[in-house]
Amino acid sequence: MTRVFSSLDEVRAALGEDIGPSTPIVIDQERINAFADATGDHQWIHIDPARAAAGPFGTTIAHGFLTLSLLPLFGADLYEMRFGGARVNYGCNKVRFPSPVPVDSELTATAAIIDVAESPAGAMLTVKYVVTVTGAAKPCLVAESLVVVTP
């Protein structure tokens, strides 16, 4: 269920609270190949199932940056800001890929807003995401996303 925030005060009141998990997303070979084409990263571990079968993971794996690029999709599923203007990506902190994402894995995410800072540009939210492959012992991504909510 999507968490709805109607004001910055509601966001502040929820600091540190885990939101989620998200609706699962399956990472199939078609998505991996499309990401490879979009970024030019055609390393065999991502796009060559035959060669990857003999590789360290026994199958193709998603690009770490593919997983990172899904944060806006997970965020839209997890929470909604019904205040302010535009949402502008400002960057990321502490991006880590602790475990691989094998092809056809199901991913879910949780989010926690861990900081709110105000500036003339708007409210800067730091949102910590933890993305997990269903059944895996460790997350596949832990990252803090910085988003400015304009006035």
Rank of each mutant, 00 (worst) to 15 (best):
R87F: 14
A111M: 07
Q43V: 02
I113C: 01
A14V: 05
G58T: 09
S6W: 10
I114M: 02
H63T: 04
V11Y: 02
G64N: 08
D48G: 00
D48T: 04
S7W: 03
E30T: 13
I114S: 00
T59A: 15
L15D: 12
D77H: 01
L66G: 02
F35G: 00
V133R: 08
E80Y: 06
G64D: 11
Y129R: 07
P139A: 09
I45L: 10
T126A: 13
A52V: 03
D41L: 10
P100Q: 15
E30H: 08
E106F: 06
V149P: 00
G58E: 11
T134A: 15
L66T: 00
E118C: 08
S105F: 03
V149A: 02
L141E: 13
L68Y: 05
L78R: 05
R51I: 03
S69C: 07
I19A: 02
A112L: 09
F83Y: 12
T23I: 06
G16E: 09
P49A: 05
W44I: 03
L15N: 12
S6C: 05
P49W: 04
R31A: 13
G75W: 06
A38W: 00
V133L: 04
R3A: 08
A143I: 09
A13Y: 12
V147F: 04
A36S: 12
